[in-house]
């Protein structure tokens, strides 16, 4: 693995090569000495994939598995100082581990990997809302963030939070979460009296709170889905119809993106959207550099650099 310094140099070179020399020079000069770095690692739709896919000749044989993910995360933590580890939901369902243990090893493994927060996917209700609360309470220890489910009167009421602010490396990071419409997707007996609220409206409201509280970065964990053919609410709408959200960690549609999308919000500011497929086959890593310079559009000023990695 390349170390942080060469990585930054390469990023700067890649950015510079895509800009006019003069602009790149100006950008370099403007970089505040008191800059900050933050590494965001993310997964989505891991679906109880505790073990790697079996060696049976099928498409993903040998890939994934929490032990390999844990080793990769440990490696990254040894190089990057300030790391946030996030998940966009559907932790449960998909292998016999869930049928037998109802989410216990999945949540335990996430706690051990040091996840900071997750949001809730539709399949996280598959053992019922009481089971979800039980697993998170007994084995979690990380935040379950969802801003648009009203859990009043359910066991999740004391577990889920609408947002959380995490201080990391001198930065204030605000995290909110949005979940998908449950009616017609999840059997009603599983989600109980959980009420689904308009995700765009709630995301906007909560992102506004986080902005007002002085967050340097606002992240939305979303299980709405990356994109749909129809007009079903997706992360495309979430990005375009809100403000104050910098990054959307996407889930639900099992979409493998070659690189994160950069969309513009209501105010024309950049919103980065990324999703890493499903089953823990990939781990996304976003390295942010922060400074005090205001008003620039992140991506148009410094094009996103993209690298593909396996392991060492």
């Amino acid at each position: 693995m390349q170390n942080r310094r060469t990585f930054i140099r390469q990023s700067a070179l890649a950015a510079g090569s895509l800009l006019l020399g003069a602009q790149a020079g100006a950008a370099e000069l403007l970089v505040d000495a008191r800059s900050r770095q933050l590494t965001i690692l993310h997964t989505n739709d891991t679906h109880s994939r505790i073990d790697p896919f079996p060696m049976d000749g099928s498409r993903n044989e040998g890939q994934g598995g929490v032990a390999a993910r844990a080793a990769m995360i440990n490696q990254i933590r040894s190089e990057a100082e300030h790391v946030l580890l996030l998940d966009a939901g559907d932790i449960f369902q998909g292998t016999p581990y869930f049928n037998i243990y109802k989410g216990e090893p999945e949540v335990k493994a996430m706690a051990r990997m040091g996840y900071d927060a997750c949001t809730i996917g539709n399949h996280d209700f598959d053992g019922g809302v009481d089971n979800l609360a039980l697993q998170m309470k007994q084995h979690g220890g990380f935040s379950t963030i969802v801003s648009n489910y009203d859990f009043a009167g359910t066991a999740m009421e004391s577990v889920a939070v609408p947002y959380r602010i995490i201080k990391k490396g001198g930065l204030k990071v605000g995290i909110l979460g949005v979940g998908i419409e449950l009616d017609g997707l999840v059997p009603a007996n599983l989600y109980g009296t959980t009420r689904y609220l308009d995700p765009i409206q709630k995301a906007n409201e909560v992102a506004g709170i986080l902005h007002a509280k002085g967050c340097d970065l606002v992240i939305c964990l979303s299980h709405l889905g990356y994109k749909y053919a129809g007009n079903k609410v997706s992360d495309q709408q979430l990005a375009r119809e809100t403000e104050n959200i910098n990054l959307i960690i996407s889930g639900h549609t099992h979409t493998f993106l070659d690189k994160p999308d950069v969309l513009q919000n209501k105010k024309g500011q950049d919103v980065v959207v990324n999703q890493v497929g499903w089953a823990g086959l990939q781990l996304g890593r976003l390295d942010y550099d922060f400074n005090r310079q205001k008003g620039q559009r992140l991506i148009s000023a410094n094009p996103l650099t993209v690298t593909k990695k396996t392991h060492e």
Partner: peptide
């Protein structure tokens, strides 16, 4: 502080990891 630069790494978790 404001996000000023972003780099993305896509880690594939393969069989030899």
């Amino acid at each position: 502080m404001h996000p000023a630069k972003l780099a993305y790494h896509d880690y594939k978790i393969d069989a030899a990891a």
